[in-house]
Amino acid sequence: MNIFRLAGDLSHLAAIIILLIKIWKTRSCAGISGRSQVLFAIVFITRYLDLFTNFISAYNTAMKVFFLGSSIGTVYLMYLKFKATYDHNHDTFRIEFLLLPTALLSLVLNHEFSVMEILWTFSIYLESVAILPQLFMVSKTGEAESITSHYLFALGSYRGLYILNWIYRYYFEGFYDIIAIVAGCVQTILYCDFFYLYITKVLKGKKLQLPA
């Protein structure tokens, strides 16, 4: 474990907590893409299948349980409890265009052709594009609540911090995982224009408004 990975995990944890607070406090999931949340739940389910078979540490297990529970819980809140506030009309990104290519790619490009490893690879590829429905929705509505933009900033930062973790591990541990690194770079790059808007607008107290 290193400071970059810990900061990344805490940023990821913060993002999920911010989202849960937003939905619970406002009792609404307006502006949030349910499709992205479904993809995140799939990411965690396919990645953490080794929850019971491969014990790394108490921290690792606790975080996996929290990520699994919170992502499934968020989908429940959005599609059942606060279903009436879910904005179907703007959450229209075709997620089959994300699921199929990532599934095929994980069958072709992986470290080991085994069920667990292919599911882990699929999860890594899917996570790199899972935010697209949410970014698409923000561009369609043209704006986002400030709490939603804080959520996106924390979520985008987590994988950016992981890139620093991979650089650290390469130089100090001689470890690197090219699949996670490439997917992590793609994932972080997808946030770049949002990061620009967040830093130039939201941090100055303005609302996140995309140029129409």
């Binding site: 990975r5 995990d9 990821h12 080794d50 491969n54 790394i56 690792n60 975080m63 996996k64 990520f67 470290h111 080991e112 085994s114 667990m116 490893e117 882990w120 992981y162 973790n165 995982d177 996670a180």
Partner: peptide
């Protein structure tokens, strides 16, 4: 030999 790749990152 298929070394099962143990992923220690979240």
């Amino acid at each position: 030999p298929s070394a099962t790749v143990a992923h220690d990152e979240l």
